[in-house]
């Protein structure tokens, strides 16, 4: 079950790639996924394979997740001193394998609860890219941790669409008559533009969010 890759805006023109993993076991009851097992099959078999289904977090959920943790995660990523982060990270108790030289932060204050795993290099580089003052100790730490496996090449354009009511042209002479007709066939005129935010890919690995608890679904009254 692959994580979900998305981009998160960090200031007016820079974005970072973020991957959201869902710990299905803890999120949902496991019995849903046993359908594929042939449990009646008695044999000398040592192993039985069972198929699992993919689940994906929806766009709406991602938006809800990011806005819910937004304050906390920014606090940790940008403001809490690095040394404190390292200390915090070592106290977190989790079954997520945290790669070496990475931090693991438990965000459990909001309705979405998750672990955030982020390489130490990422945090320091992000801060320096955003011109947040760093201490000499931070840089020393930065040089100490080994460079991660490489720079990702992923890149992004963002589409901005705006809908505007169709232009009603006032018929001035006969030449425009054709145009007016044509315009009228469309409901709204769509205009769009692309902006190219800078993707901070030189930070090495992605920021990983491991969701382990979500708010109850709000069932809309039918």
């Amino acid at each position: 079950m692959p994580p979900c890759l998305t981009f998160v805006k960090i200031n007016h023109n820079s974005v970072i790639p973020v991957r959201i993993h869902v710990n299905r076991k803890r999120l949902l009851s496991s019995k849903l996924f046993h359908s594929a097992i042939d449990s009646s099959h008695k044999s000398k078999a040592l192993l039985t394979l069972k198929k699992i289904n993919f689940i994906r977090i929806s766009n709406k959920d991602i938006t809800s997740l990011t806005s819910s943790i937004s304050h906390d995660i920014l606090e940790y990523l940008l403001r809490v001193p690095i040394s404190e982060l390292v200390k915090l990270s070592s106290d977190v108790n989790t079954d997520i394998p945290v790669p070496p030289n990475s931090l693991c932060i438990d965000l459990n204050k909001s309705s979405w609860k998750c672990h955030v795993v982020v390489p130490l290099r990422f945090v320091i580089k992000l801060r320096s890219n955003l011109l947040i003052p760093l201490t000499d100790d931070d840089w020393a730490l930065f040089n100490k941790v080994k460079s991660d496996s490489g720079v990702s090449t992923i890149n992004l354009l963002v589409k901005h669409t705006t809908m505007s009511p169709p232009k009603i042209l006032i018929e001035e002479d006969e030449d425009d008559a054709f145009n007016v007709e044509k315009q009228d066939t469309k409901k709204d005129s769509l205009s769009y533009k692309f902006t190219s935010p800078s993707v901070l890919t030189n930070l090495g690995r992605f920021l990983d969010i491991y969701v382990y608890e979500r708010p109850p679904r709000t069932v809309l009254p039918s």
């Binding site: 981009f7 805006k9 200031n11 974005v15 806005s67 890219n129 955003l130 011109l131 992923i154 963002v158």
Partner: peptide
């Protein structure tokens, strides 16, 4: 930025945010 030296010319006091970009608005290159 990608040259690595990067650094924004914007003030550090800028308001940072953590907002998801709508998936359908993303055009991803790889």
């Amino acid at each position: 930025h990608e040259a690595g030296s990067g650094g924004f010319l914007h003030a550090a006091s800028e308001n940072f945010q953590f907002t998801n970009i709508n998936l359908s608005d993303q055009i991803v290159f790889e």
